[in-house]
């Protein structure tokens, strides 16, 4: 029981102080590993890999993984719930304040700036993924001065072709995103994407 409680408290604090995307939870995960010995730093890198390649927000995935690792099924349920509890409390409070001041010109003006920033941050995150998806980043690191000669080898042509096909598909049909995701996973397996 005490381990379960400790899990809940630690991940509640993680949810409270990790601000931003799922990767923001990382420093906390390392801290917890060090202080409790529940899992090792090596386990953390496994968790990241699994969380990134399974559906669901990364932070939640990592919390579930740690929870299961430490306390089995009960841990896998309690830990992510503890992680999201601060969000629910804080966002409900923010929503209430926002409702009250929605018509305030100051808030309107601040939101005008926020939306531009928000779009930029999402675009930046998207570009980060694009780099991994479309470039052989390992080659990028070692190529250095010979970059000019090997330029075509740097690009992941299979992925780029798939991206073009998906884009044309969206423009033409605008199906549900799930369809494109499932299609792309199938193409990846069929054509043995690396």
């Amino acid at each position: 029981m005490s381990v379960l409680l400790e899990l809940a408290v630690r991940f509640f604090l993680c949810g409270l102080f990790a601000i931003g995307g799922g990767l923001a939870t990382l420093p906390f995960l390392y801290d917890i590993a060090q202080e409790t010995g529940w899992y090792t730093a090596q386990d953390v890198s496994n968790m990241i890999a699994i969380s990134e390649s399974t559906p669901g927000p990364m932070g939640v995935n990592m919390a579930t993984y740690v929870g299961y690792h430490v306390e089995g099924l009960v841990g896998a349920i309690v830990t992510p719930l503890a992680l999201v509890l601060p969000s629910v409390i804080v966002i409900v409070a923010v929503s209430r304040i926002l409702d009250q001041f929605k018509t305030s010109r100051l808030v309107q003006h601040a939101l005008y700036g926020l939306r531009a920033a928000s779009a930029a941050l999402i675009a930046a995150a998207g570009l980060g993924v694009a780099k991994i998806a479309f470039l052989h980043t390992d080659l990028l690191a070692q190529a250095g001065s010979a970059l000019g000669e090997n330029l075509p080898a740097l690009f992941n042509w299979k992925s780029i072709c798939l991206a073009v096909v998906v884009y044309l598909g969206i423009v033409k049909w605008n199906f549900h995103p799930i369809l494109y995701i499932v299609f792309s996973a199938a193409v990846g397996i069929l054509f043995q994407f690396q």
Partner: peptide
């Protein structure tokens, strides 16, 4: 790898 290209 396929999904990543699609998500972009």
């Amino acid at each position: 790898a396929g999904v990543r290209a699609c998500v972009c």
